[in-house]
Design a protein around this nucleic acid. Structure first.
Length: 550
RNA sequence: UGCCCGAUUGUGUAAUGGUAGCACAGCAGACUCUGAAUCUGCUUGUCUAGGUUCAAAUCCUAGUCGGGCAACCA
């Protein structure tokens, strides 16, 4: 597994191991079950699990389910599935923040007893006003000086459901004048009369992220708590809570989140696309979600290789999606069997080939990997070729078919175009060619060089297939940074559904099977595919040298 | 305006006081029954100004630019 890269986090781990601070490395991936995982999460997953793997430690999968009004079990299974698909295993270490609600409550009580937490009755608006703004000190609420006994009583009554949502909140007593807003007596427990998927109706108060997360890490013995940059300002609070409670203190380290060109990474925005039917669900192959990429035909190996390559830093950046596509091609090139499919068919009649006759050619599944075997492809008098593989008036470096020129039909015969058939409006509807019967298999006995090789499908044997041509979802390199609504920058051509002609064997493809359609790109059978109606997704096109003349 | 963080070719990263390297992208060529893959070569970079040092991408100071923080979200 390609996790042997190094980065500044690993430098820290190396140092901690060398100094004896830790002997076993424990990390965690802590998703909130309120959405689907995307490529940005893949980066975090590769770091969290990859670090544990590299150092022979363990990585916990922990659902951060502290907000029952935002979360849904719908997402839990999808998240587990996605992490597994990426190739990682949490073993028996599956946890829930809600597993620790009792402990967290006790910790909150402890904080109150230490005089380090109090119940506050400020309204949400007043709460904000008292907190103030970054460059001015905040104001201390009256409740800040409540007695410990009164706080204990009030917090107990909050827990017992005596108060309505929003009436009280438990706050850490830190410093209303701190330059760090998160230290201005942050709320750590709020009242939410909501049913929780794990704990049912046991609780009507739930811990806030800042209070819950450090306790979860501490309880689980996490050594390195890795998160994204926006939590940097939360770190003092993380340390304060554990320090005040004198609990084991994991260290939090922050790294930059992934940004990719021509995509958005915000869960909220992705949800918007799904809800407004601008895409066909979370697993739409245009989505940067892990399930979307899976359906698109990306492999876990390629996603992991990409995550390794981009590295882990604190520098905010915008990674070129071409780098991801490179890794997808790189992996698919190795593993995808070759097939022929014509996406924009132009009929060719081999006039010298006997009518009614057909034969089968044996073609390799992979040009450089004989061990991948061969398949047979039927040939007949009428075939389809790609419309763009013919030019009536060929450009200078056009190597393909043109009137009077000879090309190789991949693995079949050398053919020469003898006639161009047009309809009344001048559109080319058919080509006539003659073949060299001596060139069976694709080479002439006289050894003459033929530069052009094009793919083909027998018109009498080929099967129609729905082919979904996917392109980038946005036309803007950085849709989230545009001044207007990101949805104004959706690519109207991000999906183009066409009917192509595939070699017959391809109709048996099972959903998820991956192929290279020679000279076109990598494709995979979609979830919707059926032998009676094959459906293929374009995963990514082949790289095209810029010298290729259209 | 307060605090925190960051800045290395077009993009992403490495170099931990000692030759600025790698990958992608781009360009040129070789090879090729995929204009793919593969192979070869090439172009382009340390934000600025001072300082420390025999030596600075690296350490210090100031500035510039970019980002984050003001949910009873995570």
């Amino acid at each position: 597994m390609s996790t042997l890269n190094t980065n500044f986090i690993h430098d820290i781990v190396d140092a901690d191991l060398a100094s004896g601070k830790h002997t076993e490395i424990v990390t965690r991936f802590p998703p909130e079950p309120n959405g689907y995982l995307h490529i940005g999460h893949a980066k975090a997953i590769c770091l969290d699990f990859g670090t544990a793997l590299k150092y022979g430690g363990r990585c916990h999968l922990r659902f951060d389910d502290t907000n029952p009004t935002a979360e849904d079990t719908e997402y839990v299974e999808a998240i587990e599935n996605d992490v597994r698909w990426l190739g990682f295993d949490w073993g028996k270490h599956l946890y829930w923040a809600s597993d620790y609600f009792d402990r967290m409550y006790e910790c909150a009580v402890e904080l109150i007893k230490l005089g380090k937490a109090y119940v506050c009755d400020l309204s949400v608006d007043d709460f904000k006003e008292y907190r103030g703004v970054p460059h001015l000190p905040g104001k201390e609420p009256a409740g800040r000086n409540r007695s410990i006994a009164e706080n204990l009583d009030l917090f107990g009554r909050m827990k017992n459901g005596e108060f309505a949502d929003g009436t009280y909140v438990l706050r850490a007593k830190i410093d209303m004048n701190s330059p760090n807003l998160h230290m201005r007596d942050p709320a750590i427990y709020r009242i939410k009369h909501a049913h929780h998927h794990n704990t049912g109706d046991k609780w009507c108060i739930y811990p806030m992220y800042d209070f819950a997360h450090c306790l979860e890490d501490s309880i689980e013995g996490v050594t390195h708590s890795l998160c994204t940059l926006e939590f940097e300002v939360h770190r003092p609070l993380y340390d304060w809570i554990l320090g005040t409670l004198k609990l084991y203190q994991p260290r939090q380290y922050e790294f930059a989140r992934l940004n990719l060109t021509y995509t958005i990474m915000s869960k909220r925005k992705l949800l918007e696309l799904v809800k407004e039917n601008l895409v066909n669900g979370w697993d739409d192959p245009r989505m940067p979600t892990i399930c979307g990429m899976r359906r698109r035909g990306y492999t876990p190996e390629s996603v992991r290789a990409f995550c390794t390559e981009i590295g882990i830093t604190k520098t905010e950046s915008l990674t070129d999606v071409a780098l991801l596509e490179y890794h997808v091609r790189n992996d698919l090139n190795e593993i995808a069997p070759r097939r022929m499919a014509v996406l924009d068919p132009l009929k060719v009649v081999i006039t010298s080939y006997p009518d009614g006759r057909s034969e089968e050619f044996e073609l390799p599944n992979h040009p450089n990997k004989p061990e991948m075997g061969v398949r047979t492809v039927p040939f007949s008098r009428e075939i389809y070729i790609e419309r763009e593989d013919f030019m009536e008036e060929p450009a200078k470096k056009f190597f393909r078919l043109a009137p009077g020129t000879e090309v190789r039909l991949r693995g079949a015969y050398l053919v020469t175009c003898t006639n161009v058939v047009k309809d009344g409006t001048g559109n080319i509807v058919e080509l006539h060619c003659t073949h060299d019967p001596e060139s069976k298999g694709g080479n002439a006995p006289d050894g003459r060089k033929v530069k052009g090789t094009i793919h083909w499908v027998s018109a009498t044997h080929g099967i129609k297939a729905e082919v979904r041509l996917y392109d980038r979802l946005f036309t803007s390199e950085n849709p989230a940074a545009e001044d207007d609504d990101f949805k104004n920058h959706l690519n109207p051509d991000s999906l183009n559904v066409i009917t192509g002609i595939i070699e017959p064997g391809l109709a048996a493809a099972k959903a998820g099977d991956k192929f290279q359609f020679e000279r076109i790109g990598y494709f995979c059978a979609d979830l919707d595919t059926a032998a009676s109606k094959p459906v293929f997704n374009r995963t990514v096109g082949l790289r095209e040298s810029s010298t290729k003349q259209a």
